[in-house]
Design a protein around this nucleic acid. Structure first.
Lengths: 226, 226
DNA sequence: TTCATAGTTCGATGATAGCCGAAGCATCGA
DNA sequence: TCGATGCTTCGGCTATCATCGAACTATGAA
């Protein structure tokens, strides 16, 4: 049955990451779901056998995408039912809670804090977001220059957008990706506000006490929250 | 997550059985899924907690139905993705046909004719129904006074509502219960339109030829019927 | 060729959850 | 009041399956 495929948390996370129609590599999907590549490979072949995703081989990468918009539609319908049911039942992912709080997504911040940061940036009108597209406002430019010493003009990249919304698998909401997202995370590390967990292969990001305080000052959630 | 609820084969069978909008008892659903009542009970509470189904208690029975058409829609979408033939629906066992046609439910009319009567009353705007609550309209008051010589004001009772929707086990839809339902059935008997079957223990109600005609004149189903 | 990276397969492990027998309530019929 | 019936709870058994370490294949780069 198809539903049992979607029922597993790890697979659901992968599918959620594919909801926007993009194709992602197997390792990226493993990353997103917080599982090892071996496990992901097993899941992906099941999803493929179930006709939910289809692979596209490209060099040594294997890109996976949803087989069609109808799949996305059903997934969205399921999400809608979950929401209606009062949702709240946050399925524990396969990994630790620290991973849900703050982690690396490729090269930018994800998890609760990542989502909180983008939320705050929207509220402070530092960025404008329409769907997946995010645009830095003039005010935003000034903000990152003053608060983080990041020059927006230096973030241009031939094949990568400066701002991009990335769906967070633990929060099911967007966090900030793109070259700006990477630059911000990089600055956090340089300022000694946060550091990747030393454990090999870990994606956990540990904030220092001082860093957490500064982060809260800039992107704190003291404001009204929906 | 909702998908994991639907993912289990036993639960999927139950949900499939409920797809047409009818309500089924817990034991029927257990039989449908090929599991024991204990197991079914566990599944049903999970489905209820997930907001996919809702119960309606009826005496010692517990009828379950889907919480809404959107649930059915998502299930249909999943079935579409599965591209598999749906499970053959097990027919809910009818006992005697006469029992399905008209019978006594406590003290009021049930079965095909009972459901038909409440349907017609709704269509004629004699009653308003919201969920299980039924209210007699002014027009309805006049109607029962003229057609059946029933005084609505005499139907008040300290511990029993005048109108109540009672789930019909053979039709899986509501018929009219409460003191009004009882009074109507009583009047049918007095007018010699119908009589309980003389066989001991039988709940069958036999309508006379004349009674059937008069009943059809008041609550006939000549109108369109889905 | 040699090394590195992406992805897979295999095997063992462990936790989740479905399942049923037995027993306990609740309601109905007599 | 006393069974009979529908349904639930509890406890233990078992099977399924997600997970990861280790080893293997394939592609690309030096």
């Amino acid at each position: 049955m198809v539903a049992s495929l979607v029922g597993d948390p790890a697979r659901a996370n992968m599918l959620t990451a594919l909801m926007d129609g993009r194709a992602l590599t197997a390792s990226e999907l493993a990353h997103q779901a917080g599982i090892t590549p071996q496990t992901a490979s097993s899941h992906l072949s099941k999803l493929e056998a179930g006709g939910l995703i289809e692979p596209e081989k490209q060099g040594r990468h294997r890109y996976y995408r949803l087989t069609g918009p109808d799949v996305a539609g059903v997934l969205e319908g399921l999400a809608g039912l979950a929401e209606r049911a009062g949702h709240t039942r946050v399925r524990t992912g396969p990994k630790e809670p620290a991973l849900r709080r703050a982690r690396i997504c490729y090269d930018h911040l994800a998890g609760d804090l990542g989502v909180q940061m983008l939320d705050s940036m929207r509220k402070q009108k530092l960025v404008r977001q329409t769907k997946q597209a995010i645009e830095l406002t003039g005010e935003g430019k000034r903000f990152i220059a003053e608060a983080l010493q990041i020059d927006a003009d230096m973030l241009a990249h031939p094949r990568r957008p400066m701002c991009k919304a990335c769906l967070d698998w633990s929060e099911r909401r967007h966090h900030l990706a793109g070259t700006l997202g990477a630059a911000v995370m990089n600055r956090f590390t340089e300022l000694n506000w946060a550091a990747r967990d030393p454990a090999p292969g870990s994606r956990v990001v540990n904030f220092t006490r001082a860093g957490e305080k500064r982060f809260a000052a800039l992107f704190g959630s003291s404001e009204a929250h929906s």
